[in-house]
Design a protein around this nucleic acid. Sequence first.
RNA 1: AGCGAGGUGGGGAAGCUAGGUUAUCCCGGCGGGCUCAUAACCCGCAGACCGGUGGUUCAAAUCCACCCCUCGCUACCA
Length: 489
Amino acid sequence: MKFYVTTPIYYINDLPHIGSAYTTIIADILAIWHRMKGDDTFFLTGLDENSVKTVQAAEAKGYKDIQKYTDEMAEKWKNAWQKLNLTYDDFIRTTEERHKKNVIKFFNKIYENGDIYKGVYEGLYCDGCEEFKLEKDAPDGVCPIHKKQLKKIKEENYYFKLSKYRDRILEHIEKNPDFIKPEKRRNEIISFLKQGLIDTSISRPGLKWGIDLPIDKDHKFWVWFDALINYLLPEKYWPPEVQLLGKDIARFHCITWIGMLMSAGYPLPKTMYVHGFFTVNGQKMSKSLGNAIDPISLSEKYTIDGIRYYMLRDISLGEDGDFSEVALKERINNEVVANYSNLFYRITSFIQKNYNGKLPSANYSEKENEILKQISSLVKRYESEMQEYELTKALSTAVEVSTIANKYIQENEPWKIIKENKEKAGSILNFGAQLLRTSVLLYYPFMPNSGKIACEALGIKPEWKDVEKPVLKEGHELKAVMLFKKIET
RNA sequence: AGCGAGGUGGGGAAGCUAGGUUAUCCCGGCGGGCUCAUAACCCGCAGACCGGUGGUUCAAAUCCACCCCUCGCUACCA
């Protein structure tokens, strides 16, 4: 089985914020899980550098050489992702030759297919903003920012015959309930399509930055057209099993991109998953409010895994959610530390102290077999939740498993038993360690950094095979490690 | 305005498609147990007339009607 997941490619007019980190982390979780299962996995992320915004940001910061600016920003983005230990397989920049080649190739296909024509774009232009305004944003034809009369400008654009594909797109979405998730986004797209579709322009004249249109040197590709094509990069993995999107860009992906692919004759992605947005401590995140969160400094304080855990645990994937530092800290202390890390330590340190770090022999009874059955059904549930991209549910299933393990240890009181019967206590610890191994693996995609340490200490590999079974053998060596520290401040 | 999603104990959610014993889970609060463990772990308790009104039914959080409230989408904004 192969698994190909994409994130949107991000604008480089600023550094990564918590929102872009969120999307990329979701992709990372999925990629890690599929790798554990042995799937041929490919995780693509990258940067959208051909936007007019790039030029504006570069100039605002005093750069004359735009390419230099993009190179520097790209380094910063890569560094940020490395600090967060994200495991992407390739990082695409739309200023790269390999991308430009793909754009041209793609364009030629739809051009030869007769889906490109020259038309006129009419719009209200503001000299101050240097951009077109929509009528709804500019009541009375006046720019809301500059209070100036907008000019009616006509310019020639090349258009893509998107409207031609409207029926096919609609049909595809209606016939494939899993194509757009969650359902609420699917409904939105369907109702949008039912209103009808107009063609979309794909080029702009007179730009100095961007990719040249092969049929007309005076035009550059409009940034959206060029950006979407990045996903085609890993040819042998096409089509993606899932493309992750923010809700603001759902329509471009679920409609325009799909129409483009139909025209060029590519198979379609299996699922477009639209996630929600964060507010920060109840407020909308924005630069002007100055409440944008830097994921790097946050991770230094709370650990990468702590943040990953919180994001998926507290915020239902697909819904909007509030990012609160208070809640973050509570989740880490009350769940990651108290439930998981504590479980890990109480079992491993007990074995280390009393059994020289070697797994004692086991003699399971009806009670243990009952629990194994329960675990096995929870693991099945986890797998189907992961498969359906219900990551929040899958994580809470993982929590259930480690709770069962804590309960088992608690009820069987090996610290008492060991005083009279070391062998019997050993059997309890043996079973506890088996449950611990399952917990570690279920948590692994969500918290891979501590997961690595946990696997090493347990002497296991992060593999999904027999995840629900008690496969650790008598005499297996393991070490006591504290995976997380309590956040005190 | 149209279309869509939702309103469930202090907070966050599940249940509702196939109506039926004490409405479930997590956090928080309170009490107890345990002491292997990072005051962690385990057990118990309090707290919800399931947005409102009316209807269908032996029986509704679950079905129907109307109403109120919140949020999202309604084209070039990653």
